[in-house]
């Protein structure tokens, strides 16, 4: 085969691989072709040939970097997300808003944070779902981006007077606790004026001159320690089996998500045996709840047990437990 024919064949191959998405294979062939051109002394217009090939290489390089830079964990398609929403564990007696809230939480459980945030935002407009939706927006921000984003969101709400002062207080304490969980100790502004002061404080680092805004404590209004509708945020829980063949076994589960008093656990299919201990409606005695302020003992009501039948978590179990504080 003449050199020209060889080069042509290589270029054709490269193009074919490129069109099939076999980008590295295509690159190898273009490189072979370039080398062949450079080595040959029969060819007339070498620079033009090499120029032509390197143009193709550049296009290919662009495709490669486009793919290498593509996000690794994309949001799933709307269709999949709709399938996931249908899997939410709502009980039939919930009202429409509560169901919508539950569905949005389910999306978040599956890591579909952007879609979840947009649904929670809709739920912010309704009184009954306002606070839980706001808390979950903050959670999603932390999971999706960073704690800074959650703080920015909180500050936006603060500056826009989006919430009643009582509600904002709840959100502030909630967020501070969430941040602590992430290992971030941060004092959040309580009023609009403090937003500027605190960010100035941060930029001046440990500025001794800075006089902190006076704490205004009015008698009536003290910090809601653990808000009534929301038990402390549970990070994980330990269960001691007190009956049956597994009696005495201790299991620890990480809490995947929490909505008010109900915590959600994800139990991998290989621990299927444990799931047998969870019968919907039954009470589990002897539960240790680990929170950011410490451990408390309590029990739990099994609210729902569902095998995930679709998507990558197929076969795993989602167990919802209502926290009962003694």
């Amino acid at each position: 085969m003449s050199v020209v024919k060889k080069i042509k064949a290589l270029l054709k191959e490269a193009e074919m691989y490129h069109s099939q998405g076999l980008l590295y294979e295509a690159m190898a062939k273009y490189n072979d072709a370039t080398e062949l051109v450079q080595k040959s002394d029969q060819l007339k217009d070498k620079p033009a040939l090499i120029g032509g090939i390197s143009k193709k290489i550049n296009t290919l390089k662009k495709d490669i970097s486009r793919i290498e830079l593509a996000p690794k964990k994309p949001e799933m398609s709307t269709n999949i997300q709709d399938l996931i929403k249908k899997m939410s564990l709502f009980s039939p007696d919930l009202d429409e808003d509560a169901k919508a809230l539950d569905a949005a939480v389910t999306l978040a459980k599956f890591g579909q944070f952007k879609r979840a945030i947009s649904e929670f935002n809709t739920l912010l407009k309704k009184d009954s779902t306002r606070i839980p939706a706001a808390k979950n927006i903050l959670r999603c921000h932390i999971a999706l981006y960073s704690s800074n984003d959650a703080v920015a969101q909180y500050q936006t709400w603060l500056s826009e007077d989006a919430f009643h002062p009582d509600q904002l207080d709840k959100l502030r304490i909630f967020l501070e606790n969430q941040l602590k969980r992430e290992g971030v100790e941060k004092t959040l502004p309580k009023t609009k004026d403090q937003i500027i002061e605190i960010s100035a404080e941060a930029s001046a680092e440990a500025d001794e001159e800075h006089v902190p805004a006076p704490e205004i404590t009015d008698e009536e209004h003290h910090e809601p320690a653990a808000e009534s509708e929301d038990v402390l945020d549970v990070n994980s829980l330990g269960i001691t089996v007190d009956d049956g063949p597994q009696k005495g076994n201790v299991y620890e589960f990480k809490v995947r998500f929490q909505l008010g008093k109900v915590v959600s656990l994800l139990i991998p299919s290989r621990e299927k045996d444990v799931v047998e201990n969870f019968k919907v409606g039954s009470e589990i005695h002897n539960v240790q709840y680990y929170t950011n302020v410490g451990l408390f003992n309590g029990s739990g009501l099994v609210a729902a047990v569902k095998e995930i039948t679709i998507g990558p978590l197929r076969g795993d179990f989602c167990v919802d437990i209502e926290v009962v504080v003694h």
């Binding site: 998405g21 486009r66 793919i67 593509a70 996000p71 994309p74 269709n79 999949i80 399938l83 679709i310």
Partner: peptide
């Protein structure tokens, strides 16, 4: 039902088709 897939940048399957 519908085929569900994710076409991301470069139309590679990053997740799965269903």
């Amino acid at each position: 039902g519908d085929m569900v897939s994710i076409d991301t940048e470069g139309d590679r399957t990053l997740f799965f088709d269903f």
